[in-house]
Simulated assay, not measured.
Amino acid sequence: MGARVSRRWLLNGALLAMFAAPQLLTSPASAAPANTPTAVTIAGDGMTQPITVPAADKPELFNAVLGQVSWLKGKGQSSSPKPDKLGPKYTVTVLVGDAAKQTYDLYPLATGGPRAFRPAKQPDKKLKTTAAWFYGRLTMSETLRAAGVPLPEQPETLHGGGVGGGDRVFDDDTLNPGRDIDKLLTDLRQMLLLNGAVVVIITLGLAGIALLVRRRTR
């Protein structure tokens, strides 16, 4: 009798473990780490209210916006640009649940390419960092525009990952082919004149040496 009771308890325990295991594996506590970002907000010039991009509802757009700021670590890549060269500013805040954790300032229309700034003061008091400037990703302008930021379309944007300009990597002066050709011709002309002068000087020097040698050998 005791053996039957033990077997029944063992069988009931095994069945209970089988039903409980899937629930434990899919419980919210084990589904994602506690510090995983759940949303990003965008606020800035020309916007009446912030834009919220939740990870659950818009995962692709969320990852695209988060990708503009998630790599902004270290000491930075550039010095502080001039304020009048930055253009409109848009602040991206990373949320975990309802708590703001990190914030970054993006300048997609900065002269020479977009810039990003990481403030030393962050919403999460436990996060210790320093202020730093970075060259923004090439897709910054179009990513923010896709999220709803009032930015003009940039058909000449160089799409792709990596770090560099946003809407233009170089300004109009840098990308002026006519000016570059004129400068090239001017430099070439100066080089030819310089080389010609050097040849004349060398020729005169050789002639003088030959004349001197000829006089001494007579």
Rank of each mutant, 00 (worst) to 15 (best):
A3R: 14
R4L: 02
V5P: 00
S6W: 03
W9V: 02
A14I: 08
A14V: 15
A17W: 09
F19I: 15
P22T: 11
P22V: 09
P22M: 04
Q23A: 15
L24V: 15
A29N: 09
A29R: 15
A32G: 06
I51N: 07
T52Q: 13
T52N: 09
K58T: 15
E60N: 13
E60T: 14
L61G: 06
N63Y: 06
A64R: 10
A64H: 04
G67Q: 01
S70V: 05
L72H: 03
G74W: 01
K75C: 00
Q77D: 06
L86T: 08
P88Y: 09
K89L: 02
V92H: 04
T93I: 11
T93A: 03
D98T: 15
D98E: 14
A100R: 15
D105F: 12
L106F: 14
Y107N: 12
Y107M: 12
G113R: 01
R115Q: 10
R115K: 14
F117Y: 15
L127P: 05
K128N: 13
T130S: 04
A131F: 05
A132E: 02
W133L: 05
R145Y: 07
A146E: 12
V149R: 13
L151S: 04
P152I: 15
E153R: 14
Q154K: 09
T157C: 03
T157M: 07
V169F: 10
F170H: 15
T174G: 01
T174L: 01
N176F: 00
P177F: 01
L184S: 01
L185T: 00
L185I: 00
T186H: 00
T186G: 00
R189G: 04
M191C: 00
L193K: 12
L193I: 09
L193F: 07
L194V: 05
L194F: 06
V200Y: 02
I201Y: 04
I201F: 04
I201H: 02
T203C: 02
A207N: 04
L212S: 12
R216P: 01
